[in-house]
């Protein structure tokens, strides 16, 4: 227990120390270089602004892979944001903006892949597997049903006679 406490304390110390220096560092940087702060965007309408921010979260930063461009400081993301804003002002629809980005950066640029091409397989395989599993389960149940029928199956006259004979024999032995 004590061993873990020491490890934890060390871990906290080591994560805190650099965080402090980074904090100081960026403070200085921002003072020196105003260009690190992105200016507020002006849009010709509130509707465009809303669509801009929605698209910001729908497009992926191609440099950082797991961030949306609205969440990323990478130069490529800044450039993509600029381009999205410009295209929207030019009257592009959301779909057209996304297609414009796909043309340049590939299908991976959108968090909502279009249906078609190889993405159709995601759906086909999902539904096909589900259908297959249902078929297997139904098959198993039917088999079990069949087995039940077997136990209640009627015996032929010959079998009845043989069964009776065995029972009589058994009774004779035990009594």
């Amino acid at each position: 227990m004590r061993y873990w406490a020491i490890l934890l304390a060390l871990g906290l110390l080591s994560t805190q120390a650099p965080a402090q220096t980074i904090g100081e560092g960026t403070g200085l940087l921002i003072q020196e270089d105003q260009s690190l702060v992105e200016p507020l965007r002006e849009f010709s309408s509130a509707e465009l602004e809303e669509r801009f921010y929605r698209l910001n979260w729908q497009l992926r930063c191609m440099q950082c892979d797991n961030q949306a461009i609205g969440d990323s400081n990478a130069p490529v993301s800044a450039q993509m944001r600029d381009r999205v804003a410009r295209l929207l002002e030019q009257g592009y629809s959301d779909r057209e903006v996304v297609d414009y980005m796909i043309e340049r950066y590939g299908e991976g640029v959108t968090y909502r892949p279009r249906l078609g091409g190889h993405t159709i397989w995601i759906w086909i395989v999902g539904f096909a597997l589900t259908a297959f599993l249902i078929a297997v389960i139904v098959g198993i149940r039917n088999r079990h049903g069949g087995a039940d029928d077997m136990t209640t199956a009627t015996l032929s006259a010959e079998e009845q006679a043989r069964l009776q004979a065995l029972r009589d024999q058994n009774r004779g032995e035990t009594s």
């Binding site: 191609m62 440099q63 990478a74 130069p75 490529v76 450039q79 381009r83 340049r104 950066y105 590939g106």
Partner: peptide, 12 residues
């Protein structure tokens, strides 16, 4: 300003 790079799909 990375205009041509953008059209080319340059990431970095």
């Amino acid at each position: 300003i990375g205009e041509f790079g953008f059209d080319l799909g340059v990431v970095g």
